[in-house]
Design a protein around this nucleic acid. Structure first.
Lengths: 195, 195
DNA sequence: CGGTTCCTTGAGGATGATCAACGAGGGTGG
DNA sequence: CCACCCTCGTTGATCATCCTCAAGGAACCG
């Protein structure tokens, strides 16, 4: 889902550059802007007391993120961080909500987007609860596979990232992949994972 | 969120009675209806191979449920079961989508509802990942506390239900509550939990 | 090259799951 | 009214699993 860039700029949006690792918004902060990535990518995470990280989601060029709190007067449940150097469009909450009022079609697309998010969150939560690390990891791999072909593709995530997504530890992820490789569920060539 | 009953009936909705434990829709089933509870309540769950249950959510009188797949052409990610004898309104997907088109205000309310769901799912997933059973349970208690008073209220869930929600086992839940009672984080009077 | 960042392996320990058995309460029908 | 049943709560013992900690090794990039 993305709103047309020209439209955004017409309504007074500005583009901002974020450095790698820069915080875009913080947990518990009030939501004042609509964000849409022009170029780069963003991760949303939570970290607990001991510094363990949990990744809520990755967002790439063209994606918007952090919308839900705009609609319901809630603070952000997670931190958003630029994962690489990124160019991101910001539009004030008021203007954003006005756009939705003016263009019912855009509103509908957002409704659909939110439904997709709920659906995928329901699936991933189920996978996480299901305990078995291998199960969690396979669910992650399936969810993030671009094409649905049978052909194995390289997995563009580090083991640490997969750990953060699945709520496991790096070492566990590594050991599970070793087992999965032995049973031909994935291929590992030169440390790179193919699924 | 609920659509006005008269409006629903005008559009051809019918009310159906479900017995306690009756399945309303199944996992992986195609979504053909909009459901709204008139009376009773419904739980959405997933169970894994070993029969362990995970509760995605409870829904009560006035709530609608199972909407996301209607918008995105996906199957249901979970099972919906009547938790008590319940009276539930069904409206065909086509008619439901037409209502949303005709009444932008209703569509907007659904958008807000979906945002609330995402928000609370983000919060509960974070709590679950956070590992520590006590942490998970406290998050559950907080999320389900009706009033936000300091006064302790009775917790209207069985330990099994809390276990299913938090992804823990009953015995673990019991032992954690025993500890929490000792440290005055909850009160337990006659097996009933107050938080 | 030299420094990051990422990956790997092993040993040991903590913790929640599992299994099994029993207790307690509440409702129902004879 | 009480005997029974059914659901819910409780407890202890044992086990499997993943986390932790520690120490290196490999790959990649300027």
């Amino acid at each position: 889902m993305q709103i047309d860039l020209d439209l955004l700029f017409t309504w007074g949006a500005i583009a901002k550059e974020y450095k790698k690792g820069e915080v875009i918004f913080n947990e518990n902060e009030t939501a004042n802007f609509y964000y849409q990535i022009v170029d780069g990518n963003v991760k949303m995470i939570n970290s607990n007391d001991e510094g363990k990280e949990f990744t809520q989601g990755y967002f790439n060029s063209g994606d918007s993120f952090g919308e839900p709190p705009l609609f319901i007067n809630e603070t952000y449940p997670s931190i958003a961080i630029a994962f690489q150097e990124s160019k991101i469009i910001k539009l004030s909450k008021e203007k954003f909500l006005k756009i939705l009022d003016e263009y019912p079609n855009i509103q509908k697309q957002f409704l659909e987007l939110m439904c997709k998010r709920i659906h995928s969150k329901a699936k991933s939560t189920t996978a996480i609860i299901n305990q078995k690390p291998e199960f969690r990891i396979i669910a992650f791999l399936k969810a993030h596979k671009k094409v649905n072909s049978d052909k194995k593709e390289i997995v563009p995530f580090t083991r640490q990232e997969i750990a953060n997504f699945t709520g496991l530890r790096v070492e566990t992820v590594i050991r599970v992949f070793a087992k999965m490789s032995a049973s031909n569920k994935v291929e590992i060539i030169n440390h790179k994972i193919y699924y």
